[in-house]
Design a protein around this nucleic acid. Structure first.
Lengths: 128, 128
DNA sequence: GGTCACTGGTACCCAAAGGGAACTACGATG
DNA sequence: CATCGTAGTTCCCTTTGGGTACCAGTGACC
């Protein structure tokens, strides 16, 4: 198992292992969110952008392109009237969603355990 | 569940939710690796540095400090002779390791399914 | 026919982070 | 006195992230 292209066991801790690049790709805020946004089926650029509150179009484009390059998402263009571009998960992308979904869930479930003052943005605050 | 400090359900997709910051912290290559390096018990700076091949001391310091600030790791200084600093996981950090370990494992287990040419660094290559 | 909006971006620019090499402080050791 | 090992820090440069503005193509609207 896992002793292919670099001739030795894959290891995310090895600098030269392609794993490192993959981890860098997946262990990324926008990637984790973007892949999650596609879990429920294909979505259009604008819809993803809306879901990922606060993402700039440039960053979203870059993120999606990177995911596409690495075979995690498919980009389908429907040359219809006001142009229609759909992003969807590849099978590989779907599989990658599992650990990422767990990570997102863990964050949501455990956020309250974190030392608060640093994290809680005073503007986005308590219903007091 | 999860409707505390910001008065509404936590959501990593919400720009203002503290979850976003936490995800940004955890969904990061060096954080994921550093936390993993501490899974088996406390380690010293030099040991972590050695495990995380290719990390520069500056980046490692920044990463560990950030994790410490957020209550994921503890930093203990033993003012012994050639100075001795140990990093260890807090209970929260230990819990955070689980989803991150799954992510690291997923990468290692699935790296071969990725479109290769893009990923395989020509320098770090096959035993040909 | 000119203008508007809607979609899915790109171009430009700046700030922040990443990353490498060198240097510091501390005392022990030779 | 010079050197070593530890745990960083400092400087500098390159890369990346991120925001704003703007563009193209088309149909609808006035």
């Amino acid at each position: 198992m896992a002793t292919t292209s670099c001739g030795k066991p894959h290891d995310v801790y090895a600098a030269a292992c392609p794993c490192r690049d993959m981890l860098d790709l997946l262990a990324n805020k926008w990637s984790a969110l973007a892949l999650g946004a596609l879990e429920d089926g294909p979505r259009r650029f604008g819809a993803i952008r809306a879901k990922l509150e606060g993402v700039s179009p440039k960053v979203l484009t870059a993120t999606l392109r990177r995911l596409e390059e690495h075979g995690l998402v498919d980009r389908t263009v429907y040359p219809a009237v006001p142009l229609h571009v759909e992003y969807s998960l590849t099978p590989l992308g779907q599989d990658a969603c599992e650990p990422l979904a767990l990570l997102r869930r863990w964050v949501v479930d455990n956020i309250d355990r974190f030392p608060g003052p640093v994290l809680s943005d005073p503007t986005a605050n308590v219903g007091v």
